[in-house]
Design a protein around this nucleic acid. Structure first.
Lengths: 108, 108
DNA sequence: AAATTAGATCAACAAGAGTTGATTCATCAA
DNA sequence: TTGATGAATCAACTCTTGTTGATCTAATTT
C-alpha cells in the first residue's frame, strides 16, 4: 500500500455517479472553472453566463457525486473541486481497464 | 511522443460520450462481460438475462461511443471491447486532473 | 423453397434529466 | 427594521433516455 494512495477504492455505484456527473458539457465547464481555483456561485454564474437556478441545479449534481464541495462564508458560498474524486475515478478506470485486459475466452 | 501512446487525444465531445455510455449499470455489465473476451449477442442476452431488443439498444450506445466493435460472422454478430477507448479515456481524465491541479486563484 | 434463428429497428410508452421563473431563506447593508 | 442580495428549492414543463413488444431482414437449416 503506497503512501500516496490512501483512498478506499470506489464502489461501482459511486463511479457511475461520477461518470454521469461529468458527462455533461455544462458541468465539465464548471469543473474546469473550479480547477482554476475556488469560486463563489455568483462568480460562476457570471463566468459561465448561466441562470442562477440552472447553475444551482448542476452544482447539486456535482456535489452529490462528490466532485465538488461547498464552503459558506457570510453571504456567499464557495465551491471547490475535490481533486480526490478525480483521482478515485482514475484508479477505478485503471482497475476496469486491467480487468478487461484478460485473454479472450471463446464464444461458446 | 512515446511509442505506446499513438492515439490522438480525445475531444471533449468524445470523452463525454464515453463517460455517458459507461454511466449505466447495465452497460457496465456488458463492458465487464466483453472484458472477458468477444461474445456474440445471443450469448450476452443469456449471460446478462436481458431482452434482445433491450440489449441491442445498449450495444448501440456503447458502439456509438466507440467502446465496443461488432464483427459479423455468418448468422451471428460478435462484439468485442475496444480497450483503446478505455485507454483514451484514461488519458483524457489524466489531462483533466492535471489541468485542474493548478494553484488556486482568488475569487474576485 | 419454407421454416428457423440472430439481431437490428421501430413505434408507443414510461421514466429520468434539464430548464425556467417564482418563491423562500439567510445574510448583510442602510 | 427595512431593503437588497446570494443561493437553494420548488412546480410546471420540455427534452432525452430507456423499455417493451412487434416487425423486418438476412443468413441458415431442412
Amino acid at each position: 500500500m503506497g503512501a500516496l494512495e490512501h483512498n478506499p477504492p470506489l464502489q461501482a455505484r459511486q463511479a457511475r455517479q461520477l461518470l454521469r456527473a461529468m458527462a455533461d458539457p455544462l458541468r465539465l465547464q464548471v469543473i474546469e472553472a473550479l480547477g482554476g481555483g475556488e469560486r463563489c456561485v455568483c462568480d460562476l454564474t457570471g463566468e459561465l453566463g448561466l441562470a442562477q437556478s440552472k447553475l444551482s441545479f448542476h452544482l447539486k449534481v456535482l456535489r452529490e457525486a462528490g466532485l465538488i464541495e461547498a464552503r459558506e462564508q457570510g453571504r456567499w458560498i464557495y465551491y471547490r473541486l475535490r481533486s480526490e474524486a478525480l483521482q478515485d475515478l482514475q484508479h477505478w478506470l485503471a482497475g476496469l481497464a486491467d480487468r478487461c485486459d484478460q485473454p479472450a475466452r471463446g464464444c461458446n
